[in-house]
């Protein structure tokens, strides 16, 4: 305000009226700006620059490679496997956790008693330390002594070696992912649900739609459209960043069946110290995240119109 009006006053005249000086605003913003530059923007630029080099930590010299790191990645089966594994994980976790979150939210919201209890129960996994709970899950899904397999054998089904069988390891990780995310999505949906005006349900009832299913499809679901899009993308971003459970439970195994992007990135950068190549992977990772965020921003923009 101060600046814009000062700009309008003809040159040579003193600024009229007394407002706070714009310097105050700068002083307020400076600490954050320093941190923003130092811990985020500069590192990102350095990281992008390094993705064009063959730098390895501890090396005395390095050379400029151009796009070599990227072509290496393009030809590397391991990188593709990690990318596809990550996408597979996203494809498993997102639909399940969104649908479960929505179903739980709608049902809990429809209750007359005990909403608080269910909210706490379903949200508890979100706040728990995932690493600790992952070890519990490893035990639950254990091939011989896990209760899940106890249940399967009781039902007359064959026992499954979740963390030993390459084709089962991603679904096993996805189960843990869904478990830890569904409650979060439920709370997001609940917020969306409470924003739906009660009159819409009354209007629908007057129009002859009075079954719960009918209400859900004519009012709830369309009104939750923007929230749903938002939840889908938020969940996608979270799922895309899967790292903890892999690092603790599988370490990419068996036979690379659970190599995911961030885990490979971690190994390249911090175990093998191949900074150049790891930077290239990070650039790819950042690109995908930004793309998802862009879609999210578009969705949020559209949501404003509701």
């Amino acid at each position: 305000m101060a600046l814009s009006s000062a700009a309008r006053v003809p040159a040579g005249r003193r600024r009229l009226g007394a407002t706070i000086s714009p310097a105050v605003a700068y002083w307020f913003a400076v600490p954050s700006v320093i941190l923003l530059l130092g811990t985020l923007l500069l590192p990102i630029m350095v990281m992008i620059a390094m993705s064009f080099t063959d730098y390895e930590l501890g090396a005395l010299e390095f050379s400029f490679l151009g796009l070599d790191n990227y072509t290496t990645l393009w030809r590397d089966a391991g990188f593709w496997r990690a990318l596809l594994n990550t996408l597979y994980y996203v494809a498993l976790v997102v639909p399940a956790s969104v649908v479960i979150g929505l179903a739980l939210a709608v049902m809990v919201n429809g209750l007359r008693h005990g909403r608080g209890f269910y909210q706490v129960a379903f949200f508890l996994p979100v706040t728990s330390t995932l690493i600790a709970m992952a070890t519990v899950w490893k035990y639950l899904l254990h091939g011989t002594i896990g209760p899940v397999n106890h249940l399967l054998t009781t039902l007359g089904l064959p026992a499954l070696e979740f963390f030993g069988e390459p084709s089962l390891v991603m679904p096993a990780l996805a189960i843990i992912g869904v478990w830890s995310l569904a409650g979060f999505n439920m709370v997001l949906f609940s917020a969306g649900l409470t924003a739906i005006p009660q009159e819409l349900y009354e209007a629908a009832a007057v129009d002859g739609i009075d079954t719960p299913i009918g209400r859900f499809f004519t009012v709830t679901l369309p009104m939750l459209g923007p929230t749903t899009m938002f939840v889908i993308i938020t969940t996608s971003i979270t799922a895309f960043k899967v790292f903890d459970t892999v690092a603790v439970l599988t370490r990419g195994g068996p036979q690379g069946a659970s190599d995911v992007l961030l885990y490979v990135n971690y190994l390249e950068g911090f175990q093998y110290m191949r900074i150049g190549l790891a930077s290239a992977i990070t650039v790819v990772f950042l690109g995908i995240i930004l793309l998802l965020s862009l879609i999210q921003a578009k969705v949020l923009e559209r949501k404003v119109h509701y």
Binding site: V9, R15, L16, G17, A18, T19, I20
Partner: peptide
């Protein structure tokens, strides 16, 4: 503008005969 909360583009305010245009609200 009288209170000094927003600046004027032109003109002047005097309180008790003294110009206050460049004084902050508290003064």
């Amino acid at each position: 503008i009288l209170a000094g909360l927003i600046p004027q583009d032109g003109g002047s305010i005097h309180i008790d005969g003294a110009a206050v245009d460049h004084l902050p609200p508290r003064a």
